[in-house]
Design a protein around this nucleic acid. Sequence first.
DNA 1: GTGGTCTAGACCACA
DNA 2: GTGGTCTAGACCACG
Lengths: 129, 129, 129, 129
Amino acid sequence: MYIRIRPDSETPIYTQLIYQIKKGILRKELLPGEGLPSVRSLAGDIGINMHTVNKAYKLLVEEGVLTQQKKGFIVNSDTKLEIQPPHLLLYKERLEALVIDTQIFGMSEEMVEQMKQEIEATLKKDDEK
Amino acid sequence: MYIRIRPDSETPIYTQLIYQIKKGILRKELLPGEGLPSVRSLAGDIGINMHTVNKAYKLLVEEGVLTQQKKGFIVNSDTKLEIQPPHLLLYKERLEALVIDTQIFGMSEEMVEQMKQEIEATLKKDDEK
Amino acid sequence: MYIRIRPDSETPIYTQLIYQIKKGILRKELLPGEGLPSVRSLAGDIGINMHTVNKAYKLLVEEGVLTQQKKGFIVNSDTKLEIQPPHLLLYKERLEALVIDTQIFGMSEEMVEQMKQEIEATLKKDDEK
Amino acid sequence: MYIRIRPDSETPIYTQLIYQIKKGILRKELLPGEGLPSVRSLAGDIGINMHTVNKAYKLLVEEGVLTQQKKGFIVNSDTKLEIQPPHLLLYKERLEALVIDTQIFGMSEEMVEQMKQEIEATLKKDDEK
DNA sequence: GTGGTCTAGACCACA
DNA sequence: GTGGTCTAGACCACG
């Protein structure tokens, strides 16, 4: 699994990492129950701070995406992941902001739909593409 | 126009303000060419600092939503607002994050569509509802 | 003589007025010794505040472009206008800023020269064009 | 790199700072990719407020002269900097004002040319002088 | 240690 | 009365 971090993006590195990992799971490059690289090794590999990796992992546990075990972090193998109320609220806020910007900038449904499909294509397992 | 700020939210006050104003425009509570309250009066009304309001206004100008005149800030009356490339990039990033979370948490298209419509309903002029 | 004021420009109105008057003199639409419209009438004509016109006139007197007489303001009829040391300093600062920006943005001498000539063309008496 | 601020000048401190930094870049005292002093340290060094430095830096980012990274502000290393339309407009206005004053005060081409060359000399790397 | 956010409050320029 | 500039100082997010 490839992790691509843009250090100079205005998105915090830990946030980028969170989405790269989620992407890996959706693309089935990370399977349920599979272990993630150790905090130290991943930090070393992609050249970022250990604390940053740790923060991303912890937040993913908090979201229920990962679970933490003695030996390290693994992908949660629960069949059905339920979004927790506080995260659902945040999700709604982000959706609202996006809808507002869509309307304020007069973007058409088609334009947004197309962008969405382009994104979804990148989330498919390579085999399926 | 009512502005509701949650001081304890994680989202910065100026960001909340930006979306409250955009909402006001979409709901036609603020019309093109109409003047906004002065930075100091709005700050006083909602109990925040002048500079925070000023920052929100300035950013809205930068997005093209407002324009600034000698007498103060007014709603841009350009018929068609075009999203600028740097903002479009951010928009896409936010869309991608949302799509990823939608899939990771196994939310159905219907559920998302329903949330979206609830949001859109709040963006309609009261007359039209 | 036509005075064109853009109320929403970020250049202060009194500054715009100063340059419009200087332009009128260079284009010989205002001749040495000729009287300017009264503060009140000009303010009324172009729809701006009386104090603003007065400020422009006063500053032009201070620069030696106009002189003030009992009956009102007239164009200075001195054959040779000498820039005063304090204004020369300001002039140099503005020139420096312009040279710096020219270089920092990599604008060619030709481009600047062309802009300059376009400007100079607008400062010629209509007969001479 | 030396920064000289005149607190009593009419030009705002942040504007002075902007030109001092541009000068430093033209004189190659600040190289592309090089980091600038942190807002707080520079503010401390030249005895002004942090927010004033921050404003100057932000505006330079907006002009494309600097870029902002997680670790701080650095000199943009793009080979060719393009002036943006809104700034070009301002540039033209400033050029026009300068041309008008040159003519109104009867300054000769030679005098202006000499001032220009004196300025340009101060923008050269010390080695080249 | 870096910038980001927010506050409180002062003085000034402009119209 | 409007925004612009500047200051002093606090707490936080990020890495």
